[in-house]
Amino acid sequence: MQISIALIVLVLSLIVFSIFYRGLPSLTWEMVSQTPKGGYYFGKEGGVLNAIIGSLYLAFGATILALVMGLPVAMLMNIHLRKFKKLVNGVRFLLDLLWGVPSIVYGAFGFSVMIFFGVKTSLLAGIITVSLFILPIMIRAIDEVVRNVPVGLLEASMSLGSNKSQTAFMVYVRQCSSAIVTAIMISFGRAIGDAASVLFTTGYTDSIPTSVMQPSATLPLSIFFQLSSPIQEVQNRAYASAAILTIIILIISVLSRVISNKYNKNKIS
């Protein structure tokens, strides 16, 4: 039994080690400060700045969009619809189902909607698709905490004359701030790491997008496409991207731990 634990720890270390072992040597200043020269698939020069920036745009955009939609819904479920427990549990069930839908399905669906409306692959299409994909995660992560807020706090706020929305966004948001930050972090991690949902929707380019209507490179696809190139230098770009993505994910994971501990100071218990 201890072996199983050791195995899990070992595998994680092995993953991180192998990615860094192969990727870090390629992770030069040039790599993170330049876009690829001469085409991402054949050009030997340049770096992956296009993918870094593109991924950040995409992940921030999608996370913000998902937060803007998800936070109100999580509050709605627990405050406004408090009386309708069956309905709310139904919504939870639905969200859990959606959470299980593979990202490739979102990607394929998003792409067919884009064709329907004659929209080309673009940052915006990617942001919308990815935000739909992370929305269930975002809502459920917030909901799990909001539903455990003591009802006394709701009553206290309401009895001061707040309406439900004021209670939700001025009181509950503070009470649950650490959970919200954690939810944002998890969602951001999903958004920046997912390849299948951006494959058809965001496209890929060598340049940094200057508007949301342009296609954009992303780190996962930068790995995926460049890894299959026969040229060593291009492959190096892929491994460097993998190292960057891993670093970002590890940072997020550490940050969310630190922040969730820190943001708790005003919370009542």
Binding site: G152, A156, R174
Partner: peptide, 27 residues
């Protein structure tokens, strides 16, 4: 909210709002 505002509530155990002392009253 207007009706509730007319009646202050003090419950079994205190539920201060999750903010600082000043804002608890300013809220």
């Amino acid at each position: 909210p207007g009706i509730r505002k007319k009646m202050g509530l003090l419950s079994q155990r205190p539920y201060p709002l999750p903010m600082n002392i000043y804002d608890n009253i300013a809220y």
